[in-house]
Structure formats: structure tokens, C-alpha cells
């Protein structure tokens, strides 16, 4: 009777996790691709003669944005059909955590990847001669946007395939759900922010194609800094997955670990978006005033560092929850 109950719980967790992974995972890519298509329509109306080039670029951009939700589809299918192996309640927590991580994690990257796609389509209608440069810049920018979704997928796959059966159920179950929340939520901001920087760079390349090198450089620096909150999320997830916690039947030790994941995850959203905004402003104005690229880079980095501070506070609170309490 008890065995049957545990098996049922593992299935409940896997199916709920699979639903969350694909349901939330579909949100971002759909919005991002819709944005790309809307800008492509605008671009065709401005310059109908090159509609073929615009159409081609739209499809390439949308294909990259789609990848975030394809990751979610893969994780959801694994959750539905994977052999659950030796069922225990920790496995149930790990499977649910995997779904949460991938579902939230795909939102930001999906929306963000739509911005460079749309701006590249508009850019081609304005400057058809540099469509190759625009498509290349779009691909670099939207590929970097996918990183937070890839982090989420890595955490989801580790939760799916690692063997936690030797760890004590209490409080490790909360650590595994927290690990999913941490990377998944933190990826929202970084994916969206990276997309803002990439969109501004495609607009900038169409405006000043001769300074494409400067524009791509500042875009990549800005995106790299915008990625930091999701790296904090990944770090806290790894600590929660790999640290062994002493068995404790108290609710407070479980809640401390769940809260640690929630704190770094939620705390990463704002700084990720904010860093992306700062990078968007800097990239846009490097394209307009390249002689002051160094000043803009400096101000962008100072502004991003300040914007980062609250993500660092959140990580500190999480580490206190994990190691001190």
C-alpha cells in the first residue's frame, strides 16, 4: 500500500512538472516570435520590394526564439515518459523542481530573442545592402539570449537524472524544489534583458553599418553583465543540489532551503531586466555617437553594477539561509 502511494506521488509530481514546464515554457517564445512577426510586417509595408529578404530573416530569427520552448518541450516529454526508476518521495520533489526550472526559465529567453529578430527585419527594410551584417548580428545577439534558458535546462536535466535516493527526505525535498525555482526565476530577467541589448544593436547596425564592430562589442559586454543574475541563480541551485543537508524533521529547515531558492530566483528578475535596459541605452547611443563609445561603455558598466546590487543582496540572504541558519 505504501509503495503504491509513493509511486502515485512520483507520477503526480512528474505530470504536474511536465505541465508547468511546457505551459510556462510556451509563453516567452510565442510573445517573442509575435514581436518579430509584427516588426517584419511593418518592415514589408515600408519596403515591399525586398519582402523576400525580410521574410527569410523573420523565419531565422523566430527559429532561434523557438529554441527556448523546444527545450521546455524536451523536458516536458522526458517528465511524462521517462522511466521513474526506483520511486521515492525525493524523486518526486526533483521531478517537480525540474519542471519549475524549465518552465520559468524559458520565458525570458523566448521574449528576449524576439527583439533582435524584429529590429533586424526593420533594419533590412531601411538598409537592404547590409542585410547580411544584420542577420549575423541578430544571430549572435539572440544566441546569447538563450543562455539563461540553457542554464534552466541544465538544472532541469540534472534534477531529472541525478540520484538523490541516499539523501534524507527532510529537508532535501525543499532543496530540490528550491534549486528549480532559483535558476528558473532568475533566468526570466537575464533572458529579457539580454534581448533588449540585442534589439538595440540590430537597430544600431542598420543606422550605422560601418561601426558594426563597436556595436556588437558593447552589445556582448552588456549582455554578459545582464547574464550575471542568472549565474547567481545557477550557483544557488548547484549548492542546493550538491550540499548534503543533515536530516531534520523540523519545518523550518525545509522552509529555509525553499526560501533560499525563491529569494535568489525572484531577486534576479529585476537586475536582469535593469542591466538589459542599461545595455540597450548604451548600445543605441554607441550607434549614434561612436566617438564617445568609451564614455558610454564606462557609464553602462557603472550603472549595471549599481543595478546588480539587489541581486547580490538576494544571493547573500540565500547563502545565509543555506549555510548560517
Amino acid at each position: 500500500m505504501m509503495d503504491l502511494d509513493i509511486q502515485a506521488w512520483v507520477k503526480v509530481a512528474a505530470f504536474t512538472g511536465g505541465g508547468i514546464a511546457m505551459g510556462l515554457g510556451a509563453v516567452g517564445a510565442a510573445i517573442g516570435e509575435g514581436y518579430t512577426a509584427s516588426q517584419a510586417n511593418l518592415a514589408v509595408s515600408r519596403n515591399p520590394k525586398i519582402s523576400g529578404d525580410i521574410f527569410k530573416n523573420m523565419l531565422v530569427g523566430q527559429a532561434v526564439a523557438e529554441s527556448a520552448s523546444i527545450f521546455a518541450l524536451v523536458v516536458a516529454i522526458l517528465l511524462l515518459f521517462l522511466d521513474k526508476g526506483n520511486p521515492n518521495l525525493l524523486k518526486a520533489a526533483a521531478l517537480f523542481g525540474a519542471g519549475v526550472s524549465m518552465g520559468f526559465g524559458a520565458i525570458g529567453s523566448g521574449v528576449g530573442s524576439g527583439f533582435p529578430g524584429g529590429q533586424a527585419c526593420l533594419g533590412i527594410s531601411r538598409q537592404p545592402a547590409v542585410s547580411n551584417k544584420l542577420t549575423t548580428n541578430m544571430l549572435i545577439g539572440s544566441a546569447v539570449c538563450q543562455t539563461p534558458a540553457i542554464f534552466s535546462m541544465v538544472v532541469a536535466l540534472m534534477l531529472l537524472f541525478m540520484d538523490f535516493s541516499n539523501a534524507p527526505l527532510h529537508p532535501t525535498w525543499a532543496a530540490l524544489v528550491g534549486a528549480g525555482l532559483s535558476t528558473g526565476l532568475a533566468a526570466i530577467g537575464s533572458g529579457y534583458g539580454g534581448g533588449m541589448a540585442a534589439g538595440a544593436s540590430c537597430e544600431g547596425v542598420a543606422r550605422q553599418p560601418e561601426v558594426v564592430g563597436n556595436i556588437t562589442t558593447i552589445m556582448l559586454v552588456g549582455q554578459a553583465v545582464a547574464q550575471t543574475p542568472s549565474i547567481f541563480g545557477l550557483l544557488v541551485s548547484f549548492i542546493l543540489m550538491f550540499k548534503t543537508f543533515p536530516e531534520s524533521m523540523q519545518l523550518q529547515s525545509a522552509m529555509a532551503l525553499l526560501s533560499a531558492g525563491l529569494c535568489t530566483g525572484l531577486g534576479g528578475i529585476g537586475p536582469g531586466v535593469g542591466n538589459g535596459m542599461a545595455a540597450e541605452g548604451a548600445v543605441r547611443w554607441v550607434a549614434r555617437n561612436v566617438t564617445h563609445a568609451a564614455d558610454l561603455m564606462r557609464t553602462m558598466l557603472v550603472g549595471q553594477a549599481v543595478s546588480q546590487s539587489t541581486a547580490i543582496y538576494a544571493m547573500v540572504v540565500s547563502l545565509v539561509l543555506i549555510f548560517v541558519l
Partner: peptide
């Protein structure tokens, strides 16, 4: 403990976005 995580987690969103907006306009 749960309240502490929610407080710092949600509280970090606003300043992060707001400060980024300031930096964008400064650029």
C-alpha cells in the same frame, strides 16, 4: 524564513529595473 526570502526576492525587482532605467537614460 519564507518571509525573508520573499521580502528580499520581490524587493530586489524594483530597484533592479529602476536603476537600469536610470543607467539607460544616462547613456
Amino acid at each position: 524564513f519564507l518571509g525573508a526570502g520573499i521580502s528580499m526576492g520581490l524587493g530586489a525587482i524594483g530597484p533592479g529595473v529602476g536603476e537600469g532605467m536610470v543607467a539607460a537614460k544616462a547613456c
